[in-house]
Design a protein around this nucleic acid. Structure first.
Lengths: 176, 176
DNA sequence: CCTGAAACGGACTGATGAGTCCGCTTACGT
DNA sequence: ACGTAAGCGGACTCATCAGTCCGTTTCAGG
């Protein structure tokens, strides 16, 4: 079987993923492969063999994050109150993202990779629904909402992001 | 006189500044010194001699920009209506910044260099005044306002920044 | 065991970009 | 015109980092 990994290979793979998670959480996508390899206690050749590209590694690390966000999005779409669903969703995602700012920067770095496309689709739905319900201003596109929220989170000094998010979300509210 | 430049030196200096302005406007602070030197038609040693550090060069290029912003700030401080002054000032600065997005990114890159400190002080005054007048929400600091506006401008896709700014400024308005 | 395939790791390549150095050129005062 | 100091430019150093290659080690099945 080509899909089976030797025991030591599997062990190293886990070490690499753990190390990468730690390194990316600490330094964002700028963490170097060498640092990660060192942290994992393996040669960097080993890292590059499993993940032909650095982005592959980043994506492997944030996959779980993205899946969580997707779950949140699906839940939001089931809520009755479209407006409340949107604002709650935004705060939930922010809370998750900012629990590890480095990983958030990795998500931003990846932009819309395969797999994130589905998430984008869901977000777009949440936003449109909230706009249709008159809870969110109509002169923005779903992608604008994503970018605005993202940039507020990214630009906020450590620990201050909640206030920044408040400003942007208030700005997104529909006002007669 | 040590402060006098030889004619050719002055000519080259101007060429370098022009080239740097063009390159930074096109590519932001990532424009390489080599590119700038090539564009100016000089060796890159010449660039590095005049500007020991790349940041020195960047700062020389944005100096005029910063000065213009400072003038706008001073004017804003003379206005009667503190709230209107703030919002107008924000839009003026945005208009200036985004007329050359690459330079805007340079300004962001420089953060608060010597010289920009004075501008920061003026901005802080404008914001506090608007807050005291009840036009701007009180739960943000002047620096937060700067970062929020900056990030909205930076994250907006080409040509879309006005809408992004609208959202943030609306979010900054005081609401009873 | 013992052997072949899988996995390892680090030396190597190649790209990039900032800043230094020094032999050559050129401006400009006399 | 000529000598000298200012100025030039590009080759060089140094650092960083992603990705490749191959000789060596280790696993695991027979």
């Amino acid at each position: 079987m080509t899909t089976e990994l030797r025991a030591d290979a599997r062990r190293n793979l886990e070490r690499v993923l753990d190390a990468a998670t730690e390194a990316f959480a600490a330094s964002g996508p700028d963490a170097s492969i060498d640092d990660i390899a060192r942290l994992a206690g393996v040669g960097h050749g080993t890292v590059c063999r499993r993940f032909p590209t650095k982005d592959d590694l980043i994506y492997a690390v944030i996959e779980r994050h993205v899946a969580q966000m997707q779950a949140m999005a699906e839940e939001a779409l089931e809520s009755e109150d479209a407006g409340e669903a949107f604002f709650d969703f935004a705060r939930q995602v922010a809370e998750l993202s900012m629990s590890t700012p480095g990983l958030h920067r990795c998500v931003v770095h990846c932009g819309s990779k395969p797999g994130a496309a589905e998430l984008d689709r869901l977000v777009a739905k949440i936003v449109s629904r909230a706009q249709a319900a008159g809870a969110v201003r109509a002169d923005v596109q779903p992608v604008d909402v994503q970018l605005l929220v993202r940039s507020a989170l990214t630009s906020a000094p450590a620990g201050q992001w909640r206030r920044y998010l408040d400003v942007v979300l208030d700005g997104l509210e529909f006002r007669p």
